[in-house]
Design a protein around this nucleic acid. Sequence first.
DNA 1: TCTGGGGTCCTAGGACCC
DNA 2: TCTGGGGTCCTAGGACCC
Length: 453
Amino acid sequence: MYALVDGNNFYVSCERVFRPSLIGRPVIVLSNNDGCAVARSDEAKALGIKMGQPWFQCKAFEESHSLVALSANFALYGDLSDRMMAVAGSFAPRQEVYSIDESFLDFTGVPGDLVPICREVRARVLQWVGIPTCVGIGPTKTLAKLANHIAKSAERKPGSYPVALAQVCHLGAMVKAELDAVLAATAVGEVWGVGRRIGAQLVEAGIKTVLDLVRLDAMTVRRRFSVVLEKTVRELQGTPCISLDDAPPPKQQLMVSRSFGQAVTKGVDLASAVTEFTSRGAQKLRQQQSTAGALVVFIRTSSFRAQDLQYSASITMPLRRPTSDTALLVAAGLAGLRLIYRKGYRYAKAGVMLVDLQSQEVCQGELDWFDENDPLPSPIPAHEQTLVNAGQGGRDRTRLMAAMDEVNQRFGRGAMQLASAGLEGERRPWSMKQERRTPRYTTHWEEMAVARC
DNA sequence: TCTGGGGTCCTAGGACCC
DNA sequence: TCTGGGGTCCTAGGACCC
């Protein structure tokens, strides 16, 4: 049996841990640049605010309904997530952390009734971390996900499901008639793996509820739709097709991109953004002990600004050899930027993708030689190449990167960086708008919560 | 004025191989 | 007139997830 433990309105719940006055009020958390709502409290959902709705469209609720809107505080959410995962994980032999607010627990081999165990999981996460959760239990991951959805609905919307299913719902423990009734009351679009597109196609074909879907023949589904949906149907029927992944493999690609806080026109500002994004990417790369074989850099204007001239471009920069060296990757990124940058546009976003990732253990050997008349010069400037190629150089660079990561770990992100990243403030006109961010209570000494008697 | 930032998997089709 | 039967690898695009 699997259990899915999922934080309720996670970002909002994190904010409420340190500001209990927000409990009971409509609260939303905004995406980067305070762009749109990415988390909503139940009260905010009741106001009709949709997931992903632009902030300027719901701003009026601030006045009319005392809506509280906060900038995303990922330092806080990430830290509370780690704590929540640790507490939940202590209950089962295996755990897969699926996203910032969800983890699957694998109870295979654990004796006894899982419902009281999962109630205890819920209670302990609430007491030790302060985050309310719901738990769904089922013989497959898809059924556990569905059970979680039902547990949440039963808690939020009384009357939608039997009260007994609220907060903790065990689909594997139900008798058939009871299970069928619950599945018949759940829309097909709520199933994990059924998105907007396939959901609409299913409804069109008369398959409206989960019960309709679970009663289909898996092979027919494969023929009429896809093997992906076939797996989903088999999972709903109780046959596990998606295994628990408690040690996810390293990422195959890494992306760092941001929309800018304000439109950017100057190349030098784009260069500072590309430097920063590439540096972040290189750091992530070293964290998972990978190297990148190529780097994609892209810039684009805002498609929402119809009155602006539109431009979007990207370029793939192959690296001479796979690397995780910040300076080399940034050099490639900036060389790419030079090739795609055009004057006269109001840029809204830039990003860097690191691709062709492989383990840093793998290292293709190469003879060191340079031909000044090389008709296809490498994108990496010659002086950078000599830096790494010069005998000891490789090892020294690795130590340099390790030292940089350590400094930034200890003194905060950005404590040590490349000069082309620019300094805070006017040298970084592209930096994110975050006007409503709460303190990073648990990760920054100077922002720690103060208790007053 | 103002619209996020990441990821994965699968399939089809083309190029190429023997 | 008649033109095989396997493979692999790569890329682009679509669908999904949070």
